[in-house]
């Protein structure tokens, strides 16, 4: 398998802080890859370097045969990359259908885009709210609308930053099923820290810690690794305790 997305020595500094430190990651065609790590591990910064929202301090990002290091987001998106941000980034003033149509229309002509829009609305399961303004929807629905706009232009690679943030358990399960289904056609990179979710979708997992790649392996190997437990899963008991206090 050839690498579809490859970073080498990717580094991002903010003043004295090295948020991403010489990261080498390879994503293959058709792969489903999860990036996990505790808060502040550099996942989101890495995500923003991949998607052109940050210009990396050094290192390179290759997308197939293109060196896209420092490219603008729109140019990266035009190469066939769908990008979903952590906080749903949607068009509040437009209807769900118009939002998806605008996304589809970037790649397809008017008639084809309309067909594609209907298909995507069905695939994501939001036809019933197609006529509603996005601004009036619940947080979970907004996440799905954003996902629909991301998928609409049929990208080869989809990069999702915390797709289940703020979702109900049911919505999370639906999203997991959706991601597995999307993976039949698209390569997917998911940045997450919901472990339940990771377990349900992941094949290969890359763990970030303090800006570096700690380990990269099959999901069960990673989740049983003692070092990973220390830096990441070690927080589980604390969270459980907090949950008990809150309850």
């Amino acid at each position: 398998m050839s690498a579809m997305l490859e970073t080498s020595g990717l580094t991002m500094r903010f003043g004295g802080v090295v948020a991403v430190d010489r990261v080498d990651v390879k994503i293959h065609e058709g792969e489903l890859r999860c990036l996990i790590g505790p808060n502040g591990a550099g996942k989101s910064t890495f995500f923003k370097c991949l998607t052109g929202q940050y210009k990396p301090t050094s290192g390179t990002v290759h997308l197939r045969e293109h060196d896209v290091t420092g490219w603008d987001s729109f140019a990266i998106a035009r190469l066939g990359v769908g990008i979903k941000t952590q906080v749903p980034s949607v068009f509040d003033g437009l209807t769900v259908r118009d939002s998806v149509l605008i996304a589809a229309r970037r790649r397809y002509g008017a008639i084809l885009a309309r067909k594609r829009t209907d298909e995507v609305l069905g695939r994501i399961g939001i036809e019933d709210i197609a006529g509603k303004p996005v601004g009036l929807l619940s947080h979970g629905s907004r996440q799905l609308v954003e996902l629909a706009t991301v998928v609409a232009s049929e990208p080869d690679l989809i990069i999702l930053d915390e797709p289940t943030a703020g979702m109900t358990a049911e919505e999370t399960a639906r999203t997991a099923a959706l991601i597995r289904q999307l993976n039949e056609r698209h390569a997917i990179v998911v940045v997450e820290h919901d472990m339940q979710f990771i377990r349900s979708i992941a094949k290969t997992v890359t763990v970030f810690h303090q800006g570096r790649v700690l380990i990269e392996d099959k999901v069960d190997v990673v989740l049983n690794d003692p070092v990973v437990r220390d830096v990441y899963l070690g927080k589980e008991p604390i969270r459980a305790a907090v949950g008990r206090v809150a309850a």
Binding site: S73, F74, I83, T85, L94, R106, A110
Partner: peptide, 24 residues
């Protein structure tokens, strides 16, 4: 027109329009 819709979309959310591949 499609152009006009994108203009409105950019007003609604510049980042989203950019991430969808439009040069805002």
């Amino acid at each position: 027109s499609h152009f006009g819709r994108v203009v409105v979309a950019v007003k609604e959310n510049e980042l989203r329009a950019e991430l969808l591949g439009y040069d805002v």
